[in-house]
């Protein structure tokens, strides 16, 4: 089974800083693997441990420094990886991004059976790239996946979390899965993993390499564009009270519940 794992480098949410002009400061901000993608990696590696002949290739569209997250994925047990990187990709929205990733998968990975992505990215949070890749490749998709629970004869059984419960679904491969946070945590790499990642040859492919045209990628290939960005009004905290005892604390809360018209 050939798995393609799509991951993204995102700024660490806890490390967002503002410039004087109220824009997000991009320089010097800690970058991490999108948290949902770490579960995608773990899920792929677990599948590889469970069934025979699984090969996992990780890919990401991003600037050259996104190599780091590909190496991190390799250190966790992914077989190999490549970057899709080109200045012409700048300003891509989800349509252009998914088109680029779909093209990279078709051009550079032979006979892909399964594509695994994170359900959301914590920066854009659109939840669109996975389903859009599926549409471009005409693959079925399962979103909001918690776990792969079985595999037999080209059919995966997966558990997905929806608003009102849990669904068990069967999907015919090739398919796209979009992962939520799982009930298991992504593993920490072992020393052998670090060595493998260090020695890994992570190639970088350009727009021409993945057989796309300038009008299909980046800002040109994006139907949407940002007309305005602004910092939302920050919620101001109210009073913080240190009550004399629990009774007093509870009384204050009760008064507030009345004031908020809750009771």
């Amino acid at each position: 089974m050939q798995i393609a794992l799509c991951i993204k480098q995102v700024p660490d949410t806890a490390d967002i800083k503002w410039t004087e002009n109220n824009t997000i400061q991009r320089e010097g901000v800690e970058s991490v693997i999108n948290p949902f993608d770490t579960y995608a990696i773990e899920t792929a590696v677990r599948l590889k441990e469970k069934i025979k002949d699984v090969h996992i290739t990780v890919l990401s569209m991003g600037p050259p420094q996104a190599q780091e997250i590909l190496k991190k994925a390799i250190s966790m047990g992914v077989d190999d990886g490549f970057l899709v990187s080109d200045r012409k990709f700048a300003g891509a929205d989800t349509i252009a991004t998914s088109k680029t990733l779909a093209a990279a998968i078709s051009e550079k990975i032979k006979d892909v059976d399964l594509i695994i992505c994170g359900q959301f990215a914590t920066d854009g949070d659109t939840a669109q790239t996975g389903p859009s890749i599926a549409q471009h490749l005409n693959f079925p998709q399962v979103t909001y996946v918690k776990e792969i629970t079985g595999y037999k004869d080209g059919v995966l059984t997966v558990k997905r979390e929806v608003e009102d419960g849990v669904e068990i679904v069967k999907v015919q491969l090739p398919a796209v899965l979009c992962m939520l946070k799982c009930d298991y945590e992504p593993r920490r790499p072992l020393i052998e993993g670090f060595i493998k990642a260090h020695n890994a040859n992570v190639k970088s492919y350009s727009m021409e390499d993945v057989n796309l045209l300038p009008e299909e990628v980046g800002m040109k290939g994006s139907p949407t564009y940002v007309s305005k960005a602004f910092r939302p009004e920050q919620k101001q905290g109210g009073e913080v009270i240190v009550p004399n005892d629990a009774k007093e604390g509870a009384k204050i809360l009760k008064e507030k519940l009345e004031e908020f018209k809750i009771i």
Binding site: K235, G237, G238, V240, I241, P243, G249, L253, K254
Partner: peptide
């Protein structure tokens, strides 16, 4: 507390049963 409309400093296990 920076985003709470009202903050109470105290032990949940003591305050919540009272409430």
């Amino acid at each position: 507390f920076q985003i709470a409309d009202i903050g109470i400093v105290g032990d949940v296990y003591e305050i919540v049963p009272e409430l």
